[in-house]
Design a protein around this nucleic acid. Sequence first.
DNA 1: TTGTACGCGTTATCAC
DNA 2: GTGATAACGCGTACAA
Lengths: 337, 337
Amino acid sequence: MSSLVEVARAAGVSVSTASRVLTGSSHPISAKTRAKVIAVAEELGYSPSALARALVSRSSRLIGVLVSDIVNPYFSVIARGVDDVTSRAGYVTMLSNVDRRTTTEINRLQTMRDYRAAGVIFAGSGHVDDPHAPELAKAVRQAQDQGLQIMSLTMRDIGCPVVTADSQAAAYAVTDHLISLGHRRIAFIEGPSGMIASRQRRDGFLACMSDADLAESARCHPGGFDYEAGHTAAMRLIAHPPLPDAILAANDEAAVGALHALRQARIDVPGQISVAGMDDLRVAQFVGLTTVSLPLYEMGAMAARRIIDASSGTDSTALTVLSHRLIPRETTGPRQG
Amino acid sequence: MSSLVEVARAAGVSVSTASRVLTGSSHPISAKTRAKVIAVAEELGYSPSALARALVSRSSRLIGVLVSDIVNPYFSVIARGVDDVTSRAGYVTMLSNVDRRTTTEINRLQTMRDYRAAGVIFAGSGHVDDPHAPELAKAVRQAQDQGLQIMSLTMRDIGCPVVTADSQAAAYAVTDHLISLGHRRIAFIEGPSGMIASRQRRDGFLACMSDADLAESARCHPGGFDYEAGHTAAMRLIAHPPLPDAILAANDEAAVGALHALRQARIDVPGQISVAGMDDLRVAQFVGLTTVSLPLYEMGAMAARRIIDASSGTDSTALTVLSHRLIPRETTGPRQG
DNA sequence: TTGTACGCGTTATCAC
DNA sequence: GTGATAACGCGTACAA
């Protein structure tokens, strides 16, 4: 309700003096007036308009994060990483669900640009051969021209710095783990078709199989990133024997779906077949799923940190790859017989 | 980069005219100039400053939501409900994790007030006998005085409209379901101590037991809202036979923890013991957990809707209670023997 | 150490 | 139909 002028008037000082006190400026102020101003501000319940502040400083302390769906734990962990950094720095996190739609991403980026966000983080992966990609790239460029720091958490050609995990290498690592356990015929349940993330994970799987001279016994099956997809894919595998030695799903949730399908069919895991996933989300812990941990929290946190630091001058690297880690648990074991 | 003045200048018109065109005002404008302005704006990549706009209109199109932890699916579903409504209305969602700390809530509310948010939604439950409650209430009042719409998704005395579910009644409903299956000795694994939400759920359980003349065989055990808490509590139950007829956990995640503890101990569910939870989150579907569905998405969506509507005059009800629904699944069954 | 005055980008009021 | 101009609330040179 009360503005700086009102505080100043009530304290019997000029706006500049009040401003200097309230912003904690280094400008010298007598202890008397400082105390007076602070007291009055407190009494009037003064709330500095971040809007006006941003208007004059040409950049707000707002940081946007674009996720596919915040209900997906993959993204909520990222969002948490972002928010922990932003709020600790006095920034505010703006969240938007884009449901993997590039046009929605463009829209939301535009909106956040309208608010003169300090930066925007693209958390989701793009589509392979996305017809809207150029349009997105253009929107990104415009935003950058206006001073926004854009960051992506996946490899996609939108012309901005990237903080990511090497998901191909991660897929390679779990696959290698399965092979080292003696498994040869390994089925890969793919992610949603057309997503860059899906392709990377599959490529990692195939690369590892190929390097182990097992290209022949690698099988890729259509799937998705959710429980149902994993469940369905596993059901199909069960329906067409022989069962593979192991199943690797493109992410944990699908792996859990597959796991349950196997258990429902009374197939022993890891006795008869091993199962592994990717991401190491909470659900993987719950069911004791072997997986590979991706630095999701750190990706969000680091991207946010970059944006904040960039505002104060530091220049950011174009590509940062954070490391993953294999997490062997109880759903994988040595090959029997 | 380019402001309204620049667009106006480049189009050879006044700022007012440019503004009228770009805001889609009803003010009459010649088709010629309109087209010209639009073309120029497009070419210059004009992005209207939502900041300046909010400054003059004294309210932004920002809506804040305060959650305990966005990684907790309970809250991410709420956040999704909020964001679906806000973004469809051209608003932006601000997200903040407060880790159940009232002082943090106050801080974040303050920050969102600084941005002249249209409203702020408190998603988390408060603490019983919270010493900071008065301070929060005061902060809420100040925010309201400034025009912010404050909403709470739980019953807590902070002086704002509430959109919630009757969690006590929900707990009553699952308990009743267990009783109707013939169970008598029912153990309740409580939520985190000191939370209002925990108390409500326990009260619902106790009320139902009492109404069924089973107050004597009701047992409450300390627990929490997470997997580990449920797991630990169940382990303790297992260590001290006899086992109860059924276990009700304060939420789904704890119930899943308990479920796994039982399975690890080779105790058949629901053969030897029934297990139920509350919330009906995704994990409950996965494991076939009997639970009660709370309208979390709807709560978030409706609260957001209220805020947006209130900005355009409609007055909001003080208390709205959305309905829950019992979801019987495979972890509960009739009492044996 | 304190005060004055301008500009940030819009919208809205009023005049032409 | 169109165009000045005054707010909105703040930071900040510049002056005193």
